[in-house]
Structure formats: structure tokens, C-alpha cells
């Protein structure tokens, strides 16, 4: 692919998403949630996928995991290569066995994402019992070890407790313990800290980073919060209306955004050095996915929009070393 970040020929990425499309067939028409997404992930690398609600970041994650409800979702085009094998064409039974030991996922709201009627230890132990056929006692012992690894105090006493008996941060630790139970190579974290308060957010992010280094996992971090990913991510992909609009190393994007949308997102973060100024926001709303605007999907909200933006969709093109932007005026944005 011409737009691939790491161009190395013959070298295989751990995970490679190519031209992924996802559509939802609803009563209001076809919602085009993902419209050709490409990215790759290597061992030990952290890729942040950034975007507003409805930009397609969670759908991308669920399409990689293969847990989209089909129907209403369909994947009309694209490939998801894991170690060179296309997950999308793999028989379902074979693919199921990759969930957990190879690719794993944690979700935003740990309270609703954990089953309320089973003890947390049972839910962690289920990974060992189902995938490895470990007996109940040993699986529980491993669950306790994992709970200790994710810093849950008094893990031994709490292994039989239920999700509602834990705090939000502790619940997310349990989700993480469950996700890393079988040493997956890829961990997808879908807004892992959004439901948590700020101090706990930092702890969870630190834990994720620690575990990633320990297990050399490729980490996909999905968030709408630029602040969360700044310290953790290696690369960032910014999504809008089901496409990647900008892709860059994390430092570059903060220093010099290459797309008006990224710029808008950065400007909407309160900053200590700009005290007293009015916080800017991106005007308007993300588009209805059944009626994505022609040309550049962002043009109705873009302060720089010209005639060309209304008719011609900008391609994701190289605008510098290791970075791409999908904007007709990316150079102007970069120079601004």
C-alpha cells in the first residue's frame, strides 16, 4: 500500500489492516461506518486511534476482533492480516481460537462489560478453562495470580467477589487481567479509561504500558482523549467519518498537526499556558453515517474549506517522514 507507514518490503507486520470497510444495514439506509481504513501494528508498539464518537474507531476494533453483530454489520471489503493470515476469510471456529490467546480486547465500561452474575475470579478463570482445559482449582489459582499482577489488593480474598463489589478502577483491572490471561500478542483497549476519574485513569494507563512492555504486546489504544495517549502511544491515527484523516508519530502531531480536524481537537484541550482564553471547540456535529458529505467528509465543519473540498475527496498522502494527512491543504495546516 502506498500509504503504509512502515514500508519495509518483505517484512511482515504483526497486525495489518488493509482497506477495511464496514457497513451497517439499518432502517434508515446503509450506514458506512468504516470506509477504507489501513494501518499496521508491530510487536511492542502502541498505536492510538483517535476520534469523536461515531468516527468508527470502536467499529474498527470490533471488526478486528470479529465480534461485530453480522447482520446488521457487513464487511464488504478489506483484509485484517494477523501474522500474515487474513482473519476475515478464516473459518469462524479457527478465528474464535485467536480471541484470547492471540488478540484480546478490553472495553470502556467495565461494570457493564463484566457479567454481573459471576464472580470476577470465575470470569478470569474461564479463559484458562475454555482455551486450555485447565481444571477449576488451577484456573482459579491462575486467576488469583493475574489479579495480583494487575495490583488488586487482597486478590485471594476477593477472587469470589462479584463485579459490583469493586470500584471502577478495580473493575477495569479485572478486565485487563482477563484480557492478558493467555498472553495475547495484540491487545485492543477501547476507551479503557473513559469511565474512570483522572487519578485512576493515570494508574490504568501506567498498568497497560507496563504490561505491554512485559509481554511485548502490540497495543491499539482507542480514545477520544488526546491527553490520555500523549505519553503512551508511539503513533497516532486520527479517524473521521470512518476514514483515517491523519497518521503520524505522536510527537509530530502534538507539535504540528497536519489536518484541520486534528488541529481542532488539539485546540479543544484546556492548556495551562493559555490561561484566561476562551476554549475553542470544533463547530457542528459529526456527519450522519448514512449521508456522509461528498468530497472531504469534514468540510461542513472545517474553517479552511474551499470549493475543492466539497467535491473531491482528499487521499491520505505522505506529507513528511512517517506521516500522512488527508487534506487538500495539509501543507498550509502544517505551516500555520
Amino acid at each position: 500500500m502506498s500509504t503504509q507507514t512502515t514500508p519495509a518490503t518483505g517484512e511482515q507486520h504483526l497486525l495489518e489492516v488493509e482497506d477495511l470497510h464496514v457497513e451497517f444495514h439499518t432502517s434508515e439506509g446503509v450506514a458506512k461506518a468504516i470506509n477504507g481504513v489501513d494501518f499496521s501494528l508491530d510487536e511492542g508498539e502502541t498505536l492510538a486511534i483517535l476520534g469523536e464518537s461515531g468516527s468508527g474507531k470502536s467499529v474498527t476494533a470490533q471488526a478486528i476482533m470479529g465480534i461485530l453483530d453480522m447482520p446488521p454489520a457487513t464487511i464488504p471489503a478489506g483484509r485484517v492480516l494477523y501474522k500474515g493470515q487474513d482473519l476475515l476469510t478464516m473459518p469462524e471456529e479457527e478465528r474464535r481460537l485467536t480471541r484470547g490467546p492471540e488478540i484480546s480486547m478490553i472495553f470502556q465500561d467495565a461494570l457493564s462489560s463484566l457479567n454481573p452474575v459471576f464472580p470476577v475470579g470465575w470470569q478470569i478463570a474461564e479463559m484458562f478453562r475454555v482455551h486450555r482445559g485447565v481444571n477449576k482449582a488451577d484456573a482459579y489459582a491462575q486467576a488469583i495470580k493475574l489479579m495480583e499482577r494487575v495490583n488488586i489488593p487482597a486478590a485471594k480474598d476477593r477472587v469470589k467477589a462479584y463485579p459490583h463489589q469493586f470500584s471502577g478502577g478495580m473493575r477495569q483491572r479485572i478486565m485487563i487481567a482477563m484480557a492478558i490471561a493467555l498472553d495475547p500478542k495484540v491487545l485492543i483497549a477501547d476507551e479503557p479509561t473513559t469511565a474512570l476519574d483522572v487519578t485512576v485513569q493515570a494508574q490504568i494507563m501506567a498498568l497497560l504500558q507496563e504490561l505491554q512492555e512485559e509481554f511485548r504486546m502490540g497495543l491499539i489504544l482507542i480514545t477520544h482523549d488526546l491527553g490520555v495517549v500523549a505519553d503512551v502511544a508511539d503513533r497516532i491515527a486520527v479517524m473521521y467519518a470512518g476514514r483515517i484523516v491523519e497518521r503520524a508519530e505522536v510527537g509530530d502531531i502534538y507539535a504540528r498537526p497536519g489536518h484541520p480536524y486534528t488541529k481542532g481537537l488539539l485546540e479543544s484541550i484546556p492548556r495551562l499556558d493559555q490561561k484566561g482564553q476562551k476554549l475553542s471547540a470544533i463547530g457542528g456535529l459529526p456527519p450522519n453515517l448514512t449521508r456522509i458529505p461528498p468530497g472531504c467528509a469534514f468540510h461542513p465543519r472545517c474553517v479552511m474549506a474551499q470549493d475543492i473540498c466539497r467535491t473531491e475527496r482528499p487521499e491520505l498522502l505522505d506529507v513528511g517522514p512517517q506521516r500522512q494527512s488527508a487534506c487538500h491543504f495539509s501543507q498550509e495546516v502544517l505551516d500555520a
Binding site: 465480534i67 481460537l97 472495553f107 457493564s112 457479567n115 482455551h131
Partner: peptide
């Protein structure tokens, strides 16, 4: 959400329905 988690855990469809969905 917890059924989605059960799917993400790589459980068989039978277990996703028969254990995680049915109990609740």
C-alpha cells in the same frame, strides 16, 4: 456489553448464549 465481552474472550457461541446470556 458482557455478552460482547464473552465473544471477545473466544468462547463458543453455545457458551456465550448458554452460560452468559441465559443466566441473566
Amino acid at each position: 456489553d458482557y455478552v460482547r465481552t464473552a465473544k471477545a474472550k473466544g468462547l463458543t457461541p453455545r457458551r456465550v448464549v448458554g452460560v452468559h446470556t441465559l443466566r441473566n
